[in-house]
Design a protein around this nucleic acid. Sequence first.
DNA 1: GACAACCTGACC
DNA 2: GGTCAGGTTGTC
Length: 269
Amino acid sequence: MPELPEVETIRRDLAPLIGQRLKGVIVRLSKLVRPGPGALKSLVGQDLQEISRRGKLLLLDFGERVLLVHLGLTGALVLQRGQGGPPPHTHLTLQFTRDRLFYADLRQFGWLEVVPREDLPRHRFYASLGPDALGVSYQEFSHRLRASGRRLKALLLDQKVLAGLGNIYVDESLFRAGLHPERPANTLSPEELKRLHEAIQEVLQRALELRGSSVRNYVDGRGEAGAFQEEHLVYGRRGNPCPRCGTPLAYKVVAGRGTTFCPRCQHLP
DNA sequence: GACAACCTGACC
DNA sequence: GGTCAGGTTGTC
C-alpha cells in the first residue's frame, strides 16, 4: 500500500479541500465504509477543517466528527478539480463545494470510518498506533527497540511499535543500516540503533521528496505516480547484484512478508 | 510465530 | 494453472 511517504504526499495534495463544504456522497461499494454508508452521508453539509495523518492513517476533520481513511494495499484518494472522470476502481465519490474527491481501491483492503471526535482516543486502530516513524526521536525509537527480542523485520512492520513503515521502507532502511531483517531487536548496539534510526529518517524524507514509490498501483492525490522506486536499493531487486558489494540480493519470507536483503552487507553477527 | 482471510490483477 | 503483490486482523 501506500506507506508513510505516500500517505503524507496524498495528505498534502488534498490541502485545497480544506475549507470546502461536503455537498454530496456517492457510495458504490458500501462495505468499505464503517459503520455504514449512512454515516458518510451524515457528513454532508459539514466543512472540512483539517487533514492530518498518523502513520498510514489519514484523518479528515469535519469538526464534530472525523473521517478516518486507511488505504490498505491499493487505495487511492484522487482530487479532481474541474472536469475529468473517476479513476478505475472508484468506489466512492465525495462532492465538495468546488472539487471532487474519489476513493479508488483495486483490492478493496482499504476502509473509511466516521468517528465522533470524542471517541477517537478510544478508537481500536487509531489508539493502537505507535509514534509516527517520521520524526520519532532517537530516544523514543531506541527505547522501543531495546525492549523487544522480536526480529527487526517484524518489529518495524508492527504499527503498534512505530507507525508508518511498510514492506518497502523496512527493507530499504535495513539495507541502508546494514542490518539483517532477522536480527533480534534487543541485540543491537547503540551504534547500530543509531544507524537504523538515521536510515529510516533519511529513507522516509527522500521518498517524500520524490512523492512516494510507485511499484504497481500507487498514485498520489493528483492521480500521478511517485518516483522513489527509482532509488530503491533492494526492494523488488531480488537476484540483482547488491549496489554496495555486488553479491546477489537474497529473498526470503520473514514475518510473513517477502524480504529482500544483501546476505553479505546485512549478515547476522 | 505461522497461516489464512479479505480482493483483484499482473505475470510466468 | 500457479505465484506474487505496498496491509491488517483473527485463528491456532
